[in-house]
Amino acid sequence: MNPTTLRFGIWMLATPLLIATIGLGFQGLAAVNSAMFFTWGYFVEVLIAGLLQGVLYSLVALGFVLIFKASGVFNFAQGSMVLFAALTLVGFIEMGLHWTLAFVVTAGVMVLLAMVIEKVVLRPLVNQPHIILFMATIGIFYFLDGFGQTLWGSDVKLLDIGIPKDPRFILEGIFEGGILVNSFDLVAALVGAALVAVLALFFQYTRVGRALRAVADDHQAALSVGIPLKTIWVIVWSVAGIVALVAGIMWGSKAGVQFSLALIAFKALPVLILGGFTSIPGAIVGGLIIGAGEQVAEVFVGPLVGGAIQDWFAYMLALVFLLFRPQGLFGERIIERI
């Protein structure tokens, strides 16, 4: 058994225990402090809501990871790509297209966008330091932000592609009154899981996926064995664009398509630090931890300290990780040969 699967197995066993311990801790706290309200059913409900919210964070983080893996560039524009994709999709739906057709057309637009970005921004900046490319992506952020709203208007738009939104109760036999789960969040989680599985397989087992990882490691060497960087970049930005589209649909249906979508990207930052900038599973696990963590902290610890934990919890957690495990939970180990 290789060490990675072993570690994975250990964590699979340890995580429920860890969560149970946290629950017990809260129960103890609630017993001595009357400001706190705790029942196990409520705890699990908050936890699940948090996890499902976390999946949405993961979706955004995923786009970052893809581009960072293939080019070592932190793509500041990922958030505005989410917004742009969602705006474009809504625009096409308003023009009377069915949402599936609009999805396909928007995916095409994102591929086109990737090609333009490669030609106009990335190609002239080949072999410049990463910070230069990072600055360029800030430029892309503002451009896309403005361009999307110029094309499609800046009103808050509704996006409804028929995902059921009704709340439902589950596990009524175990917990008193059952647990309230939003079916929309469940669908989002399923979509996220499917997307991740497909991407992981693509990276691990296909020729292009392998080439993407090779480019991530060493541009020059990749060039020298005949991997065409231009094609690789177009592919990776296209995939990131389509992931942004999926994230845009999920967030857009939840909160409406509006400028603040672009800012959701900043919630993805601590997710990346937690999971590791180079790891797709990391983006997922990081998103789940951040989502569940901030929700649970807000509901149970919040009353003790006056609330608003949700706003900074993720960043605190990221800070702790930066101190003790800078490559993140699943990041590629920083290889140092002695």
Partner: peptide
């Protein structure tokens, strides 16, 4: 290239496979 430039995070076999791209 000078200084080898293997793909560090790929296995040896994956390195060879990228050569066949």
């Amino acid at each position: 290239m000078e200084g080898r430039h293997c793909f560090e995070h790929l296995t040896i076999e994956e390195n060879l496979l990228t050569g066949a791209y």
